[in-house]
């Protein structure tokens, strides 16, 4: 019992927790992130309706405005879209897809970038030069263009009937590939520093293999900045997903993400049914803002110079 207590006290006084307790912005960011993520994660259980259950939909409920307006209906808190789907529920389900794609894409970039950066920094020489030149070339194009390119190639290469099923994976890979460069550069720089430290040389003298040194010695010591980068990158990846979906190359409308919802709602924006586009838009802004604030705070909290 006392062990648990002391562990709790220790983590309560840990640097990161301490700086969280002393930053109102961070507390707000954590709360709104928790609400967004929680809402998305538990959508099937807490959403008021299941928007993808065609049996429960009725077109007669279509275009119901939000509940507080005159024509509103308390069954649909934020109103419904053209097919009678509850906006609040579609947002929760949409955020689920947005978050899933964002996190998966970040993980993909992270593994790819960290791996390449580690090898480039540790092995050095021509391999390093090659990897970093590829990174430079990729950096000279906007990330969204790279993602569009990969998406386009995948559409041509893969059979047409499979498009809708695998669209979400193609999207994830496309966004993931467009983002690895940052990780590779960060990790390579940190690895170059760590490689010359005596503990790495000690491991070499001991007789560890290069792979073991990279994975067990260098990797844990370069992960700090990478995790900060990843948090901020999640927001960027969600935006990229929303952009692609808005452009119509992302996830199919049968399984809409926030970006798809905004695109669909856009058609009705000028005809008076503003809520169909505006509420998913607000949800996207809140989600990205809170994840971003969280990432910024984490970067400051982990930076020893600002402590």
């Amino acid at each position: 019992m006392s062990q648990v207590e002391s562990w709790l006290r220790q983590s309560w006084n840990h640097d990161v927790v301490w700086s969280l307790r002393h930053s109102p912005t961070a507390i707000i960011a954590v709360f709104s992130t928790l609400i967004c993520v929680g809402g998305a994660l538990f959508a099937p259980w807490i959403a008021p309706h299941n928007p993808f259950d065609s049996a429960s939909l009725s077109l007669s409920d279509g275009f119901t405005p939000p509940s507080w307006t005159q024509a509103g209906n308390t069954t649909y808190l934020l109103g419904t879209d053209d097919q009678g789907r509850d906006i609040l529920s579609t947002i929760m389900y949409g955020a689920r897809i947005s978050l899933a794609v964002g996190v998966a894409a970040v993980l993909f970039s992270l593994v790819l970038g960290v791996g390449l950066g580690l090898v480039a920094g540790y092995v050095g020489g021509r391999l390093d030069a090659f990897i970093m030149r590829v990174a430079d070339i990729q950096l000279s194009f906007p990330a969204i263009l790279i993602a569009l390119l990969i998406d386009g190639v995948a559409r041509v290469v893969l059979p047409r009937e499979a498009h809708d099923d695998i669209a979400i994976y193609v999207l994830t890979v496309a966004i993931g590939v467009s983002g690895w460069v940052q990780y590779a550069r960060t990790v390579r720089g940190a690895t170059l520093v760590e490689r010359h430290k005596e503990y790495v040389q000690a491991a070499r003298v001991i007789g560890r293999s290069s792979a073991a040194i990279m994975l067990r010695h260098v990797l844990p010591n370069v992960m700090g900045p990478v995790l900060v980068l990843a948090t901020i990158h999640i927001a960027t990846a969600i935006i990229a997903e929303a952009t692609l979906s808005y452009l119509g190359v992302g996830v199919p409308p049968t399984r809409p993400s926030l970006g798809t919802l905004i695109r669909v709602g856009n058609d009705f924006l000028l005809s008076g049914e503003w809520w169909i586009a505006v509420f998913p838009g607000i949800a996207l802004v809140v989600l990205i803002l809170s994840v971003n604030l969280l990432g910024d705070w984490l970067r400051d909290a982990l930076n020893p110079k600002l402590r």
Binding site: Q201, A202, I206, G207, R208
Partner: peptide, 26 residues
């Protein structure tokens, strides 16, 4: 080998037990 800088020659993320055991394991 024993290195000059005791602050740099031990991996800061490892527990002492693992550091000392490393050559045995390797």
């Amino acid at each position: 080998m024993i290195f000059q800088d005791p602050y740099a020659s031990l991996n800061p993320r490892w527990r002492v037990r693992a550091i000392v055991a490393e050559p045995i394991v390797a």
